[in-house]
Design a protein around this nucleic acid. Structure first.
Lengths: 197, 197
DNA sequence: CGCCGAGTTGAACTGAATCAAGAAACGTGG
DNA sequence: CCACGTTTCTTGATTCAGTTCAACTCGGCG
């Protein structure tokens, strides 16, 4: 998988001038994780978000029955954060874990605010990111409310064809809110339908 | 139900000085809706969000089978918006409808950006709102992934005791992602458990 | 008064979960 | 590079939470 330079990302997406970007980037720490390492554990306090430059991470919670539920996948070029800790400075409510060897930028939320204050272009960019994220989450909720397991899987394939190829089925199932067994059957049915033409 | 002046809300919550607030508020239009009126319909284009001063609204989508799914309730003091239209200037993907007689402030998203640009305090306030909203949505997703109908209902009671009393059960069911019949049975079971002590 | 939507209850049904067991894929160390 | 143990995936049998369909009650409102 190719690498996403944060610098490149900002200059091309946020429309910021190079000096500003380099000042933001230089103030961030880079960190490497091996597949399986935790970027954040439930209960920890940490004041930064993560920008994935390379690799893949998952954010998930563990319920009272010990089951894992994936809230988000984060491939290169994406942000992940437990807002509870990064923004509201409380103990984290979920885990963030690398599922490939991953290199990330640690981004201080306070610093984001500073940047937004100082630079209108960055403010607008940051706002667009947040609104976009909200839109995604609303979509996901709507799916969970209205669609069957099969429909959700089809929608996942369409929206994240790249991620589908990089994570085990068991994690896709967790993301969709169904068991691995059910997902296996859904796929079997779909294969059948496809063949029967 | 009491009224939430937007002016009061901003001065007390955002920590902004009065002149600034009044300039924002004066640039917004107020609008009244009767119960049942639409603030926004699917497919419409509209560039503003709503702040509910009084009353209650719901945001919902209608699926391919004609079923309604409630994404959000919005009582006084809350914002509602279809980001697709308000922020990304595309046709709305859902309906927003008053379920009580409601008075709202129409807030231009472009104007929010301007204000944030001009005033650091407002920027911070706006950011906090967005992050908080994201946190709520993540919680909701986690619930839908991990909890049973009964657990979700109990959590709803706890989180929105006020709304519970103001909306018909059929809408609570829609919000929880279950049928009205199921909700009725969940309530019956809970009443039984409660009595059996 | 009559009607219509909301809520309840019952019976039958179903999509998905659970439990169990075997097969394939994977990575890790020797 | 192979052998090993560990996940992952699949398939079958059974169970169960929640849906669907249908009938009936109730309260409010025109």
């Amino acid at each position: 998988m190719n690498r996403f330079s944060f610098t490149e990302y900002l200059t091309s997406n946020a429309g910021l001038d190079a000096s500003l970007v380099s000042s933001l980037v230089s103030s961030c720490q880079t960190k490497q994780y091996k597949s399986g390492d935790y970027l954040l554990r439930e209960g920890e306090r940490s004041l930064h978000s993560f920008f994935i430059e390379k690799g893949l991470a998952k954010m998930y919670g563990i319920d009272s029955r010990g089951k894992e539920h994936i809230l988000q996948f984060a491939p290169e070029g994406w942000f992940v954060a437990d807002r509870e800790s990064a923004y509201f400075q409380k103990p984290a409510t979920c885990f963030i874990q690398a599922i490939e060897d991953t290199s990330v930028l640690l981004i201080d939320e306070a610093h984001i605010l500073e940047m937004a204050r100082a630079n209108p272009g960055f403010l607008e960019f940051n706002n667009k990111l947040l609104h976009n994220h909200i839109r995604h989450l609303n979509n996901r909720i709507y799916q969970l409310l209205s669609a069957t397991a099969e429909e959700r899987y089809l929608s996942f394939i369409k929206t994240y064809p790249d991620i589908l190829l990089r994570v085990p089925q068991i994690m896709v199932a967790s993301y969709l809110g169904i068991t691995p067994e059910s997902l296996s059957r859904v796929r079997k049915d779909l294969a059948g339908k496809h063949a029967a033409r």
